[in-house]
Simulated assay, not measured.
Amino acid sequence: MKALIEFRNLYKLYTMGDTIVRAVDGISIKIYKGEFVAIVGQSGSGKSTCMNIIGCLDVPTSGQYLLGSKDVGKMNDDALAEIRNRMVGFIFQQYNLLPKLTAQENVEVPMMYAGVPKKIRHQRSKIVLERVGLLNKMKHLPNQLSGGQQQRVSIARALAGNPSVILADEPTGALDSKTGREVMQFLKDLHKDGNTVVLITHDNSIAAQADRIIRLEDGKIVYDGPSSGVKDSVETAEQEEVETA
């Protein structure tokens, strides 16, 4: 079975003065269509660099990144933008909604850049806003919506172009715990519907809700496997915290 996302001995190097920083240090990853994968690590682990490469916001220094059958590392900026708009749906921690546009207009922005005709944009935006329970808010501006509602608009925007992969960067980071749980449930539901979801997080308890975890430290993979063991350890730690409180 061919991987949807594949890193082949991938490196990303940065120069800081006289020092070369290996943000990603020779890693190989395969993520298949329909998986729900969390890439987890602390600051400096390389997870954000991986996110940028998966999302076609950056290219590797060496090695290969294949998205579907596309060798992303060999693309110029225009080609990167085209494949990014067509194949990746982004969900960000800070929502990144344009304040002067309505919820519906925000959802339509990526489709507009992708050249989708206006009539189809309108139809598709209504479908995805209904899917996240916000069809009745489609004419509201972001400042008229709660944080959770704004994140749901962000999710609708990510879904609008029928992307190959949904890339969620710390999607609950700006939310209270209750709303964060609701957003994670949306991601789980998207996965159940057959979507490929890649979650970027530093939070073990959030990562444990995915089916598979890829843990990074200092640009290297230190764990790649099912989240079941991680879930057990997180639940045990939470129970011990409750018992000692």
Results as ranks from 00 to 15, higher is better:
Gly148Leu: 11
Gly133Pro: 11
Lys119Met: 01
Arg124Tyr: 01
His140Gly: 09
Val153Lys: 07
Lys139Asp: 08
Pro142Leu: 01
Pro99Lys: 02
Met112Trp: 09
Lys137Gly: 06
His122Gly: 07
Pro142His: 00
Lys100Trp: 09
Asn143Thr: 08
Asn136Phe: 14
Val132Ser: 02
Leu134Val: 04
Ser154Leu: 08
Ser164Gly: 10
Ala158Trp: 12
Met112His: 04
Val153Leu: 07
Gln150His: 06
Met111His: 01
Ile120Thr: 07
Val153Ser: 01
Lys137Arg: 15
Tyr95Thr: 01
Arg124Leu: 04
Arg86Phe: 13
Asn106Trp: 12
Arg86Trp: 13
Asn96Val: 08
Asn136Cys: 11
Pro163Cys: 07
Pro163Gly: 07
Val132Met: 00
Ile155Thr: 01
Gly161Cys: 14
Arg124Pro: 00
Lys137Asp: 13
Met112Gly: 06
Pro99Cys: 05
Ala114Ile: 12
Arg152Leu: 06
Pro117Ala: 04
Gln150Arg: 15
Arg124Val: 04
Val116Tyr: 03
Val88Gly: 06
Leu145Cys: 03
Tyr113Lys: 05
Met138Gln: 12
Asn162Glu: 14
Leu129Gln: 05
Leu101Pro: 03
Pro110Arg: 11
Val128His: 09
Val128Met: 03
Ala114Lys: 13
Leu145Gln: 05
Val107Gln: 03
Gln123Tyr: 10
Gln94Ala: 14
Lys139Phe: 05
Lys119Phe: 04
Pro99Leu: 01
Met111Cys: 00
Ser146Pro: 00
Ala158Val: 11
Ala103Tyr: 02
Gly89Arg: 10
Arg131Gly: 04
Glu108Phe: 11
Pro110Phe: 14
Asn143Met: 06
Gln123Asp: 08
Lys118Gly: 01
Gly147Gln: 10
Leu101Thr: 07
Lys126Arg: 12
His140Leu: 11
Gly147Cys: 00
Ile155Lys: 05
Thr102Val: 02
Ser154Cys: 11
Leu135Lys: 12
Gln94Cys: 11
Val116Ile: 08
His140Asn: 14
Val109Phe: 12
Val132His: 08
His140Met: 13
Gln144Ile: 08
Ser125Gly: 05
Tyr113Met: 12
Met138Trp: 11
Pro117Asp: 00
Gly133His: 10
Leu135Ser: 12
Ile91Pro: 09
Leu97Phe: 08
Met112Ala: 06
Gln93Asn: 10
Gln123Arg: 04
Leu129Ala: 00
Ile127Tyr: 13
Leu159Ala: 04
Gly115Thr: 00
Met87Gln: 15
Glu108His: 02
Asn162Cys: 08
Ser146His: 12
Arg84Asp: 08
Val116Met: 03
Ile120Lys: 12
Tyr113Arg: 03
Gln151Lys: 02
Ala103Asn: 07
Asn162Asp: 15
Gln151Ala: 06
Lys139Trp: 00
Ser125Val: 09
Arg131Thr: 10
Val109Asn: 00
Ser154His: 09
Glu130Asp: 15
Pro142Asp: 03
Phe92Cys: 05
Val128Arg: 03
Leu135Phe: 14
Tyr113Asp: 07
Lys137Leu: 15
Ser164Leu: 15
Ser154Pro: 08
Lys100Ser: 15
Tyr95Gln: 01
Ala114Gln: 03
Val132Cys: 04
Glu105Pro: 00
Glu108Ala: 03
Gly89Gln: 09
Arg121Gln: 01
Asn106Val: 06
Asn85Glu: 09
Leu145Met: 11
Gly89Phe: 14
Gln150Lys: 09
Leu135Arg: 14
Met111Gly: 00
